[in-house]
């Protein structure tokens, strides 16, 4: 049976509210929210005068672009999602939504987001487009099914929102922007590799090459530990350059110590519990760091 083929389901005839309910999981609200938070933090970290309309425009355009790229990812990966326990109920994978419709909705939302971003500021729009391109074309269409290293490109794409926010505030790509992007790039393996260890059977069933299946768990855990250190270094350096207060620097140091502790614990202990703990903590760490960096905008 070809999984790519659409499965007609009576639920696809549901009213508009039902459609929204079906589409909402396709934008991965937590992930999109976290990436949006990085974009807002990137903008606020510059400490420039906050333009409320600009901030709102940035937030909505970024939200649309990220959501659009996620829907495109769901559209293309519906066959592998259908083979994984964790994802087989997603409406694109289960056939509740027709794949052609998902494609067009994804494209339209993406174009709206990127188009809006380009009208706000050209450099900002270009970075947003780059993030979409890396995610949809390089990561999803080209590399995800070919190599475990595709996560690097997924990481680069995930790093674009914070760079975009920073570029919108400063008008150019600066060292802080690059460091913030690197922090996200190195944080993403901490997040995704712990996930790929937890759901390794699912990924194996779907035939997706991952670090655990290609290089083994020990190498994967070492990669998680090293990337956590690099993420922490990048965010620490960026925080100093941004000029956040000593108190917030102390808080970042404490949160970073927790991340490093868990990263090395997952390398040494190799338990599902520690692995899951790292996965959750890494998300909290990134969200907290973003809030702290955004505080720069409110410092005297």
């Amino acid at each position: 049976m070809s999984i790519q083929s659409p499965i007609v389901n009576p639920k696809s005839q549901s009213p508009r509210r039902g459609k929204i309910k079906l589409y909402f999981p396709l934008i991965k609200s937590s992930q999109t929210g976290l990436l949006l938070a990085t974009g807002i933090a990137g903008y606020l970290s510059a400490g420039t005068r906050i333009g409320l309309l600009t901030l709102l425009g940035m937030s909505f355009s970024l939200f649309l672009a990220i959501s659009g790229s996620t829907i495109m990812n769901m559209w293309y990966d519906r066959d592998i999602d259908a083979r994984m326990k964790r994802t087989h109920k997603r409406s694109a994978a289960s056939g509740e939504l027709h794949h052609t419709e998902v494609f067009w909705v994804g494209m339209i939302i993406s174009m709206l987001g990127i188009g809006w971003a380009l009208t706000i500021a050209l450099p900002y729009g270009l970075v947003v487009f780059a993030g979409w391109f890396f995610d949809v074309v390089i990561y999803t269409l080209w590399l995800k099914r070919r190599t475990a290293w595709s996560i690097v490109w997924g990481g680069i794409s995930g790093a674009m929102p914070i760079l975009a926010g920073r570029v919108l505030a400063t008008g150019h790509i600066d060292l802080v922007g690059i460091l913030l992007a690197l922090a996200i790039l190195f944080w993403i393996p901490t997040h995704t590799l712990t996930f790929s260890i937890k759901f390794r059977e699912d990924y194996n069933n779907a035939g997706i090459p991952t670090f655990p299946s290609t290089y083994g768990e020990t190498f994967t855990r070492a990669t998680i530990a090293i990337s956590s250190v690099l993420a922490a270094l990048a965010i620490g350096w960026a925080s100093v350059l941004i000029g956040i207060s000593a108190g917030y620097l102390r808080l970042i140091a404490v949160l970073t110590a927790g991340l490093l502790l868990l990263a090395f614990a997952t390398f040494r202990v190799q338990s599902e519990q520690v692995n899951f703990g790292l996965f959750k903590y890494a998300s909290l760490y990134m969200l907290s760091s973003m809030i702290i960096l955004a505080m720069k905008a409110f410092q005297p």
């Binding site: 140091a253 404490v254 949160l255 110590a257 927790g258 502790l261 868990l262 899951f276 903590y281």
Partner: peptide, 14 residues
């Protein structure tokens, strides 16, 4: 307070 903070976070998570 850092140890307290991280410990409370880990309790919430794990």
């Amino acid at each position: 307070f850092g140890v307290l903070l991280v410990a409370a976070l880990l309790l919430i998570i794990l």
